[in-house]
Amino acid sequence: MKTTFILSVIILNVHFNCFSQLGNSESESTLQMMSTESHNVDHSTSFIGNQALAAKMEKPIYGVFSERKYIFDGINNVILFGGLPVFRNYVTAGLNFSGNELCNQTSISLGISKKLGVKMDIGLRFNYFIEHFSGYESNNFISADAGFVFHLSSTVHLGLQIDNACTAFLSKSGNPEVKIPYRCKWGLGYDVSDQFFIGIDFVKDENFKINLVTLLKYQLKKKISIKYTVSAIQMSNAIGIEWLQKKIHFQFVCAHHPQLGISAGVIICSNQIL
């Protein structure tokens, strides 16, 4: 199984290198969040990629993700997140700050996820964005995200997440033409075995060409797993190692973009992972 995982990583890398110059789409490459996840493992952070993935979570969580993009001083990304089961639903909240003191974006999100039987999960998330450009203007928006996960079989899952398709401009001043771009993710996930998961996501960001992101995940030991993602269009790779220490989940992630360089981040959160 280890050999298969390593072989897959090599083949994907070589293969995607052929298409590395086709365009540039910015995705959550560092976070490695897909529209579907393995059904075998509980993922406390997966709802960031698809709100519906929180439906299967049963315990409260809280955590933080911090990242330095491309090792630039000016681009930081911090996410505080938490979740709570409420009347057979799962409610999540998040606070996201990215940028620096001169130019930044802050968002607050509140989401709810629910299982509709054993074959379908849905999620809905509302966001409030504040964009600040020092010396220019500040814009406020609200938007809604919707996520769906369908369990086509015990091993094959289909995920669909649409972010910010409907946004409303709230600022009294500023440029009403400015908006939060939408993002749509459509993906299939396949649990090859209890340890090995492969996922493919088509990611469409507004004003960018469609991107194809592939995730390979392998559970090395009971408490340690390794994730590898590769994005076809921009040819960025990301690798993550996660392990469970008592009831704290650690994940170190590192992404490489061929033109912009390396980004690094860490996730620390509660819950029983792996």
């Binding site: 199984m1 298969t4 072989l7 897959s8 083949i11 994907l12 293969h15 995607f16 298409f19 086709l22 396949y190 090859v192 075995s193 492969i198 493919i200 469609i210 194809l212 592939t214 076809a232």
Partner: peptide
């Protein structure tokens, strides 16, 4: 197992191939 993975990779290849042309 190798066959399953190869099949999936082939599918990905086809998906990407169509965008190149």
């Amino acid at each position: 197992m190798i066959k399953k993975i190869s099949l999936l990779l082939l599918l990905i290849h086809l998906c990407i191939f169509c965008f190149c042309q």
